[in-house]
Amino acid sequence: MKILARRVAWVVYLTMCFSLLIVPVANAYIDAGSGSFVFQAVIAFGLASAVAVRSSWGRIRSFFRGRSHPE
């Protein structure tokens, strides 16, 4: 299951990298702000997950550290 999840993550990552290799056509934008706004909504889940994972990992680590080195 873990291996499958890792493979899926790799495929998503490589697809993203590949799509970015195509150089976009330059434009003078009427409004660059909308794209920035929508883009944040697109990446929100990933950003929030990263924070959640970091904070859980910190809690786990401090739990075990607390157990192995009681004050």
Binding site: P24, G35, V38
Partner: peptide, 16 residues
């Protein structure tokens, strides 16, 4: 990716 998103929605009046 941010640049691509800007390009996609720059001229789109229906940007979500």
């Amino acid at each position: 990716a941010h640049a691509r998103s800007q390009r996609r929605y720059a001229h789109d009046p229906d940007a979500p």
